[in-house]
Simulated scan of single mutants.
Amino acid sequence: MVLFQIQRCSALPTGEAWSRLTRWERHGAHMPLTRVVVTTSPPTRVGTRFAARTGVGAIGFDDPMEVVLWDPPAGGTCGLCRLEKRGSVVSGWATIEVCPRGTGCWIQWREDLRVRWLPSVFDRPVRWIAKRVFDRVLDALLRE
């Protein structure tokens, strides 16, 4: 199990940051060798499913996810989204929380990542790599 957390302050209004971070297909544009496809019809809600396909050609794996908690920010409150990862290679969960702070917002991304067949001795390097990748994804989504 690899648990990591990323926090940011942003000058974006809470609703705009939420919108950028929950535009699932855009995540793939910032992850190496990854494409994200939403498999349910919009809008995003509990039950929305999507998959991140990471790989080159026929070599790769799918990371299917489902939104299990969807509580967008409204009226000065925080927004919280929880995803369950339901893949045969990658499992775990992720939460995205966006809270108002002054004229901008505060963001927390937490993720519990499990890679099947990978011994726990690799947890530390997987955490380091995952945190770096998601640091970049988060920053890029907020810049869009």
Rank of each mutant, 00 (worst) to 15 (best):
M65A: 14
A58E: 09
G92S: 03
H27W: 14
G79R: 07
G55D: 02
G57S: 10
R20T: 07
R116P: 00
C105L: 04
V115D: 08
F4P: 06
P42E: 01
G57F: 07
R35P: 07
P72A: 10
W128V: 07
V68L: 11
T54S: 14
W106K: 07
R86S: 09
R86L: 14
I6G: 01
S88Q: 09
L138P: 02
D62I: 10
P64H: 11
R23M: 12
L80Y: 04
V90S: 10
T95S: 14
R110T: 07
Q108A: 15
R101H: 09
F50T: 14
R26W: 06
R132V: 10
V68Y: 05
T54G: 04
Q7N: 09
V133M: 11
P73K: 12
D135E: 10
L12N: 04
W117T: 14
P13F: 00
A130C: 13
M1T: 07
K85D: 04
L3E: 15
T22Q: 10
E25P: 00
R124V: 14
R114T: 05
L33F: 13
E66K: 06
R49K: 06
G76N: 11
F134Y: 09
R124H: 15
G60S: 00
P73N: 12
V121N: 02
C9N: 14
E97P: 14
G55A: 00
I107K: 02
R136D: 06
Q108S: 15
V126T: 15
V126G: 13
E97F: 08
G76I: 13
T48V: 07
G104L: 03
F4G: 14
D139A: 05
V36E: 13
G60P: 03
K131D: 13
E144K: 03
P125Y: 03
V121A: 08
G76S: 04
W117F: 10
L69H: 11
E25L: 01
G15N: 13
Q108L: 15
D112P: 00
G75I: 09
W128C: 12
T48G: 02
W93A: 14
D63N: 10
Q7C: 06
A94C: 08
L80C: 06
L33C: 10
R26P: 02
E97D: 12
R35Y: 02
T14N: 06
W70P: 06
V90L: 12
A17P: 01
G76H: 13
M31R: 04
C105W: 06
S10M: 02
D62S: 12
A51H: 07
A140C: 05
D62A: 15
A17F: 01
A17V: 05
L21M: 13
G47K: 11
T14A: 05
R114A: 11
L141P: 05
R8S: 03
P119W: 03
F134A: 08
L138Y: 01
G15K: 08
G92K: 15
A94Q: 07
G102C: 11
E111D: 08
M65I: 12
L118D: 02
R49S: 12
P72V: 14
T39K: 07
C105N: 11
A130V: 13
Q108I: 04
W24N: 00
F61E: 00
V133Q: 09
D71T: 10
T40N: 03
Q108E: 15
G104I: 00
V36I: 15
A29E: 13
D135L: 12
T34A: 12
P43N: 05
L113N: 03
R8I: 01
H27Y: 08
L21P: 04
R110E: 07
I129H: 04
I107S: 02
